Simulated scan of single mutants.
Amino acid sequence: MRIGLFGTGRVATALAPALVAAGHELAFVAGRTHTSVLALAALAPGCAALVLPLTQLPPADVYLLAVPEAAVPELLAAVAWPTGALVAHLAGALPVAVFAAAPQVHGGVLYPLQTFSPGRTIDWPAVPLFVEAPELAAETTLLALARSLSLHVAQLDSAQRLHLHLGAVFASNFTNHVLGISHQLLAEAKLDFNLLAPLVRETVDKALSAHLGPFAVQTGPAARHDAPTLAAHAAALAAHPAWQALYTQLTLSIQAAEAARVARPASPA
C-alpha cells in the first residue's frame, strides 16, 4: 500500500521502517518541524518530508495519524483531506467517533498495543494490533495492513479498546513508575537496581501464567497483613511523603483484593 504518515514521535519512528520492511511504500512523512520529518523520511527511499500545515496532500491508500490523541481532532480539522480518503489514528483511548468531524473521509483505528521508546527495537510480528472501522471497505484495508505487520490482529470496538488501553496503562506505565521508585530507593541506599531483576522477571512471569489471574498469586507484607513490616516500610518512606501515601494506598488495595478473592465462592468441580 501507499502510506502517508503523520507524526515524527516514538510511534511514527518505530512504525515507518516497519511499514517499509513489510513491503509498503511510504509516500510521505508529515510533522511540525523540518528537521524531524527529514530524519524520519530518510528511513524510506523516495519518501517526501512535509511540514505542517499542508496546502496540498499527496495521494495515499491510507493516511496514518501517529500523533498524540489530543492532536487528532486538530489534525482532522487542519488538513484538506481528499474526499473518500482512508484515515486511521493509532490511539488507544480515542473513539472512532472522532472522525465524525471529518465526514469527507473514511475513518478507522489501527492501535498497536506496545510501549515505544527511542533506541528500542520493536518486534512488530509479536505486537498485538487492533482494528476498528465503521465501513467494511475501510475495515478490510486496515486489517490487511495490520496483518502485513503483525501475527496478532483482532477487531475491537472503541469501548473495548478504551478498557484495553486503561489496563495497559496500569500494566506498563504505572509499573514503570513503581520500578522508578524502587530504583531511587535502592540508589539512596547505595544498592544496585539490578538486584531486583530476577524478582521482577519472576513476578511478571508468574502473573502472566497464573491460572486464576495475578491476584491469585499475590505475596508480600500487605497480603499477609504483616503489620510490623508495613510500619517499618512506612517509616522508611518518611522522606518521600508522596511515595509513603502511594505505599499505603497500594497496601489497602492489595488487602481489599485479597479479601474479595478469599470471600469469592469456589467454582464447582
Rank of each mutant, 00 (worst) to 15 (best):
L94K: 01
P125D: 09
R2L: 10
H177W: 11
E258I: 15
K190E: 14
H106T: 13
L26T: 01
V20N: 11
R32C: 05
P53Y: 02
Y247P: 03
L156V: 12
A102K: 10
A101C: 09
Q56M: 10
A21F: 04
A197I: 09
P59S: 15
T115P: 07
A126Y: 04
I122P: 04
A263Y: 07
A97G: 13
N194H: 14
L212F: 13
P265S: 09
T248A: 15
A101S: 15
V37S: 03
W243Q: 15
D205H: 14
G9D: 09
V109Y: 06
F174H: 11
A146R: 00
Y111T: 07
S36T: 12
A144V: 04
A71F: 03
L185R: 06
A27C: 13
A207S: 12
V204Q: 07
A22M: 05
A189K: 13
A70V: 15
F170N: 09
D157W: 08
G180Y: 01
P103M: 09
V98Q: 04
V204T: 12
G107I: 02
L38H: 12
L19D: 01
R147G: 07
G46D: 03
L40R: 00
A222Q: 03
L149E: 02
V153F: 01
A27T: 14
L212I: 09
S267C: 11
S209H: 13
V87G: 00
Q244H: 06
A22C: 07
A39N: 11
E258Y: 11
T33M: 03
G46P: 03
R2A: 10
M1W: 04
L186F: 03
A88R: 05
A101K: 12
Q56P: 01
L185T: 03
R161D: 02
A222I: 06
F99L: 04
A259N: 12
A259F: 04
W124Y: 06
L136N: 11
Q160F: 04
E132W: 07
F116M: 07
A269Q: 14
S158A: 15
L230K: 03
T13Q: 14
P53N: 04
P95G: 01
T83E: 14
S267M: 13
A44S: 14
A189N: 08
